[in-house]
Amino acid sequence: MADKTTEKKVPVLKAQNLGIQFGGLKAVDDFNIEIGESELVGLIGPNGAGKTTVFNLITGVYKPTEGSFYLCGQRMNGKKTHQIVHAGIARTFQNIRLFKKMTVIDNVKAAMQEHLTYGLPQAIFRTPKYWREEADITKRAMELLDVVHLSGKENLEADNLPYGQQRRLEIARALATDMKLLLLDEPAAGMNPTETEELLEIIDYIRDTFKISVLLIEHDMSLVMKICERIQVLDFGTTIAAGTPAEVANNPRVIEAYLGKPRKEAAKDA
């Protein structure tokens, strides 16, 4: 299957018939997606549609019961989360998960496993390699904090940051893993319009600078419509629509999923 994709440009992420079943419940069924380089794709759907489950599948938190997914043509099924991260998929969380009692910069540094190769003896004897690598990642972490407009806050405890900044710190931490694909789970949730605007700028900026692809879950429709190149809509675990923002917005099935059917039809179904 992977051979077919190598002919043309290999998509950064490709999912084929991806699905997971919890007992009798098909949380996600027959999920297909292709994301190219530097592409920004939105994943939307009503509550409980299975969006976060898709993220959990792609990041290896859940093992797919059906189908498979590829990162740059490499099959990722069954790999552990940290292996997938090393391969190049990083994420943020719907409910912020920072290392709360650590400093802002340590939050970013903790995600830089790949950059650090010094071993235990080198750490204990504080060899030049230790100092060099630590200095390197400190510098890099500062740069990433600058990207998400958090410079000057590096020594604060992450817990003490305001909400919007915590969200941005999560993005910086994800960036620190050197990924090719960034999964953002409702990055604008709970943000005010100014903060959302700033977030949009940051997302644009990191796409341009780091040449990464983004898959975004978001409920803020204005945001999704504004920045996504393509949108995929999930409802009850299945894809009900996919296309450009304009196409999706006018799709009757999407409108139905969000606003419901006329009352009579709904009663019939129930």
Partner: peptide, 27 residues
């Protein structure tokens, strides 16, 4: 020295949130 190295940082990240730690590439 162990605590003040990448190992200590990693271990503390696991303490703070093991799911996020895993998602940050920590085994």
């Amino acid at each position: 020295l162990f605590v003040r190295s990448r190992f200590g940082r990693t271990v503390q990240a696991i303490r703070e949130d093991y799911i996020a730690a895993e998602a940050s590439g920590i085994n």
